[in-house]
Design a protein around this nucleic acid. Structure first.
Length: 474
RNA sequence: GGCCCGUUCGUCUAGUGGUUAGGACUCCAGGUUUUCAUCCUGGCAACAGGAGUUCGAUUCUCCUACGGGCUACCA
């Protein structure tokens, strides 16, 4: 890392509540959090709600909930920009008084036509050097105005991005941009600088889409006489179509992942791996490990595609190691009725059997329906594959076999099964597959004998008979 | 259009002025499980293109192409 100091680290995550908190923002929050904690620093939250049109209370709540779910607790009180207009006003007056900002009375239409005439996107400085009289006159007339920063025309503005290295822009590229709207409200670039200063932010870690804002903000820092923080811009996260992650991709919000039954730990783990790695081949790491291994310098410069297959794999790795009790708790938080017609012990065994075959909590819930209910249909393709002329006879033999069985644990059930195969000479698949279809309704599922042990012999036999009858009636 | 940034298997990535360019996910093939999944083994698969520097470039430089961001009285 460049000269960035690593004592007294203070970072902030600063979402604007104009939509749901999506994966890209979540990763920005995560990288801020990891960096802060890795350096014994503070992680702060600031809600950038200066756009009164688009900012919504529900989005604020949603963002806070999402952050909470992810486990990123702000170390200080949340700062709301909408409550800070006095502070912005104070600094604005400094700028106005020192001549570093000026009022611009050009209307939107006027600006539009100038743009078309000059064929340039830049403001041409129309009100940059007007006399006090001229401006006073407009004020008396009650004309509405914006306030623009008087930016230098020469030289360049540069900064050392902690990830991208030096970024240098000629000042001639930066026009006198608006810092206060005609309704008197401050814009993002202005509030952002003031708040980062007021909050003593040491490192600004944010999305790459802000890279080109940075020189503008640096100019504000200069005008205000503030020291600027260090900057680190994070590459974007893309959808599988390599387009910027957005609503189109379906599940892009943090909440939608939670609602789909994914857990925060694997999400965090996967997100951390998007554009960063610890320098080893290790991939499954919990928050504590991530914090200790995190290094901003190893963050990738290029944007990364969110691969839902790999995320599923990460998620399944967590499930594999997870205690069934904690899984049951989460399931019940998603659906308080899940499995309540059975004992908790039964449910825990179901979870034990299903978790190595699932990639999310919801996946377990969906796949395990047959532990609780008789299958209401048999996969037609599976049925076709399995049902042969002698299947009915075989299943009847199986019923007889198990009806007389005394010890009903899986080992014994398996032993009986093996001897049955041996004496009759049937292939195991020939017998097992229809049995499984009868019990589960499909050909995938846990070990047949553990399944029967859990279901109980009586229930298992009942299901096999039902399956036989169903075929007879067709 | 202008400015800024990026480009290693399909995806996430490791890596070096001389490597059989490594790993993970996916996919495929075997094995274990007399079913399914897990698991194990193996396989497919990449340095965007062109110049230059160099004894030698994936690695350094330049150009091109492609991709992304910004260019708002959004953030």
């Amino acid at each position: 890392m460049k000269v960035s100091q690593l004592n007294n680290v203070r970072v902030r995550f600063a979402p604007s509540p104009t939509g749901e908190l999506h994966l890209g923002s979540a990763r920005t929050a995560l990288f801020n959090y990891l960096f802060a904690k890795n350096n014994q620093g503070k992680f702060l939250l600031r809600i950038e709600d200066t756009d009164t049109e688009r900012s919504k209370k529900e989005h604020i709540d949603q963002a806070i909930n999402s952050l909470n779910w992810l486990g990123f607790k702000p170390d200080e009180e949340i700062v709301f920009q909408s409550h800070r207009s006095k502070i912005y006003k104070k600094y604005l007056n400094h700028l106005l008084a020192s001549g570093k900002a000026y009022r611009c009375f050009a209307s939107k239409q006027e600006l539009q036509s100038i743009r078309e005439e000059t064929n340039s996107f830049q403001y041409n400085g129309l009100w940059r050097n007007r006399s006090d009289e001229e401006i006073d006159e407009q004020i008396k007339l009650g004309s509405s105005f914006t306030i623009r920063l008087k930016t230098p025309n020469e030289g360049y503005t540069a900064f050392d991005d902690l990830i991208y290295g030096e970024i240098k822009v000629s000042n001639s590229e930066i026009d006198d941009f608006i810092i206060i709207r005609s309704d008197g409200s401050p814009v993002y670039n202005f509030t952002n600088v003031i708040d980062d200063h007021e909050m003593s932010i040491s490192h600004v870690i944010r999305g790459e889409d802000h890279t080109s804002n940075t020189p503008k903000q640096l100019l504000i820092y200069q005008a205000l006489g503030f020291d600027s923080p260090f900057f680190a811009h994070l590459p974007m996260i893309l959808g599988e179509d390599k387009k910027k992650l957005s609503k189109r991709h379906g599940a892009e919000s943090v909440e939608s992942y939670r609602d789909k039954g994914f857990q925060s730990a694997p999400l965090i783990n996967y997100l951390a791996l998007l554009g960063w790695n610890p320098g080893t081949n290790e991939e499954i790491m919990d928050l504590t490990e991530l914090i200790s291994k995190y290094d901003l310098r190893k963050v990738q410069k290029k944007s990364a595609v969110f691969d839902s297959k790999k995320f599923s794999w990460v998620s399944s790795q967590y499930l594999l190691k997870q205690d069934p009790n904690s899984i049951l708790k989460i399931i019940r938080s998603l659906d308080s009725n899940w499995g309540v017609n059975k004992e908790d012990n039964f449910c825990l065994k179901v979870i034990e059997l299903m978790k190595p075959r699932s990639d999310s909590i919801q996946d377990i819930m969906i796949k395990s329906h047959y532990f609780y209910d008789i299958p209401n249909r048999y996969e037609p393709n599976d049925h076709k594959k399995v049902w042969k002329d002698n299947t009915e006879a075989i299943l009847k033999d199986i019923i007889v076999l198990y009806e007389s069985s005394e010890i009903q644990n899986s080992q014994n059930l398996e032993k009986l099964f093996k001897s049955f195969i041996q004496t009759t000479g049937f292939g195991s698949g020939q017998v097992m597959k229809p049995m499984r279809l009868a019990l589960c309704g499909s050909l995938t599922g846990p070990s047949l004998f553990e399944l029967m042990e859990l279901l109980g012999i009586e229930e298992s036999i009942k299901r096999i008979s039902l399956y036989i009858n169903k075929n007879r009636n067709e």
